[in-house]
Design a protein around this nucleic acid. Structure first.
Lengths: 343, 343
DNA sequence: ACTGGTCATGTAAACGTTTACATGGAGGGG
DNA sequence: CCCCTCCATGTAAACGTTTACATGACCAGT
């Protein structure tokens, strides 16, 4: 049997209330008593029971995050960052794969989850609006990451896709590229729409025309980037640069260009979006836009905690800044000198 | 105020004990009562309070995992797999970065952690033995992943490094390579020692000599792989193949070979270990050994649950099988046809 | 010296479950 | 027809905290 607060109280010759107060610092405890209690805690090896504490305070000091199946590269930063931010403010972090949620009868899952945590970060696109509504009805604060549910009032966080795309395309324009193609995604895709908007805006701002036949829709994977690029390479004149709405498609594009006997960036410059891990490793290394998942998760925890602490301000969408990462594939930089790029 | 079990009982016209029994299935409840209670649960939107339950049962249905700072590529699989396995058996998963543990006064951290979970998977090398001992003394079951603490009795899981290395090197030998170098790591490194042992065994089994000047120690990062390879390329005759104890060093090696004007695998074949994500993306794609982190985490959860459920069998070390992943860099395969390898 | 106010501490009532034990009704064997 | 058993259900005591309220000591101001 593990030592309880009673054991400590007995050993220190005080009441359990005093021990509890010392631990929580709610009221002052005299210095000598404090010392005695602290020794007693040491002596018996006492650790407060989280369940009992949670029950008494009706708050369990835990945040939950539901993560998506796919996001291989971002996953790590998402969890790491959320955990670090949570920990910093004294919270613990529970994690759930979205498939776990989907499989379980939703109610049961909701139940277990909802009563174990004080707030939820939903980072998956595969969870229905109904689920969000259920969680909210239950009274659990929620923030949504990388998604914007229209029909529902909920805080959300996402990368500043528009500005990221503007930066990427402007960079190309400013280095002399004029005929710039884009591989985009289905309009319904949150990131796709905004990134395409940024592309258009950059062209517009620099007085360049938008050429519809240079905008091709992909499916955010390598295959479709490859296929889209094959199409683009048949346009005449051939585009001078391609902006892909994500790195996977950019990598597919790279393969297509290479297969056609052309060189990146000499013949065609290439820029991606997201800065996934392999972007550093492909050859040439890929210029891309970092969507700062670490920052996003940080903001998510922060927003969530505001709600947990009772804020009832209007729900809001927070945009996290994106950063252009210049590597070799855009042809705007001296060849990098680090080992990775040599590969 | 959220509905409690009392609200349900009242609505169904039964006692709270009956509701509880229905929920936990400990004793039979008559069919009609069950139906009535179930409706009541629906009606009031009841969800059992996890803290109260945890307190009453002195078990909180939660496992914790402490993950390392570095393991970027494995991290994802570790968490995903652990979560999935835990979920499957009805447990929830708490995650902690090892830096969180280290920073907090250990006692405090131990406290919070220990009372929130029923068992701990320690996947970090940066946590001291003292911590493990403290956790064990407290009565929390622990299993250790990817590490073998000598001075302490604890369950552990790790990849079958020896056999992985044997497979890799044998593969090279069987395809005609004879003069095979190895980039290893400090002997104290868990994986390094075993992988080197596998290398030696493969050579020995095939009647090949071990040439000391072809075994160079690196530090498990790109830089050191690069440096080690520069040394190896000065040996005469130049090695026909290099086996690196991990993929990072293999990637560094690739850079060194290329810089010297040699080709992989035409002039020098190359095999790594771990199968990190970039291994698919480098050019040529890297033949390597998959250490199956998913499987390891699965086994870890399984072993941990045995302990949680009271097993007091002898502590044991479980080896998880490793698999050779043949790609281009070993020169033993027709050039792959998938998009990635074209890049 | 009396009153009122601080301050440190103790007492006891929550918090929402689970579960050992008690209760009472139904059914079956003698 | 009685007694024993079994089964469905209720009663109430844990589980280990936090915290409102009560208590009494001590001090200062009058």
């Amino acid at each position: 049997m593990r030592p309880t607060i009673h054991a400590v109280a007995k050993r220190a010759g005080v009441s359990i209330a005093t021990v509890s107060r010392l631990l929580n610092g709610s009221t002052r405890v005299s210095a000598e008593t404090a010392a005695r209690v602290r020794r007693a805690i040491e002596d018996v090896g006492y650790l407060p029971n989280a369940s009992a504490r949670g029950l008494a305070m009706s708050a369990n000091g835990t945040l939950a995050v539901i993560f998506p199946k796919l996001s291989g590269p971002f996953f790590s930063e998402l969890i790491r960052s959320a955990e670090a931010s949570a920990r910093e403010t004294g919270y613990h972090l529970l994690v759930y794969g979205d498939s776990s949620i989907a499989e379980d009868a939703q109610e049961r899952m909701l139940g277990l989850l909802a009563t174990k945590s004080d707030g939820l970060i939903l980072a998956s696109e595969n969870i229905g609006l109904d689920y969000i509504r259920d969680v909210q009805r239950w009274g659990l604060p929620v923030v949504v990451l990388g998604r914007q549910p229209d029909d529902i009032s909920v805080d959300s966080i996402r990368p500043d896709n528009v500005n990221g795309a503007v930066k990427a395309v402007s960079h190309l324009i400013e280095h002399g590229y004029r005929r710039i193609a884009m591989i985009t995604g289905r309009r319904t895709h949150l990131h796709a729409a905004d990134r395409e908007a940024g592309y258009r805006r950059a062209l517009y701002d620099h007085g360049l025309p938008i050429i519809p036949e240079l905008v091709i829709s992909g499916a955010f994977d390598e295959e479709s980037g490859y296929a889209a690029t094959q199409l683009l390479l048949r346009r005449r004149p051939v585009p001078e640069a391609i902006f892909a709405a994500n790195d996977e498609m950019a990598i597919g594009a790279m393969a297509a260009v290479r297969e056609k006997g052309l060189r990146v960036p000499a013949d065609i410059a290439l820029v991606g979006f997201d800065d996934i891990a392999p972007a550093r490793y492909v050859h040439p290394s890929l210029t891309t836009v970092d969507q700062d998942m670490y920052g996003q998760a940080q903001v998510a925890v922060q927003m969530l905690l505001e709600r947990v602490n009772g804020s009832d301000a209007e729900t809001e969408t927070r945009l996290v800044p994106t950063e252009l990462v210049i590597r070799e594939s855009c042809g705007c930089k001296d060849v990098a000198r680090d080992v990775a790029s040599v590969v």
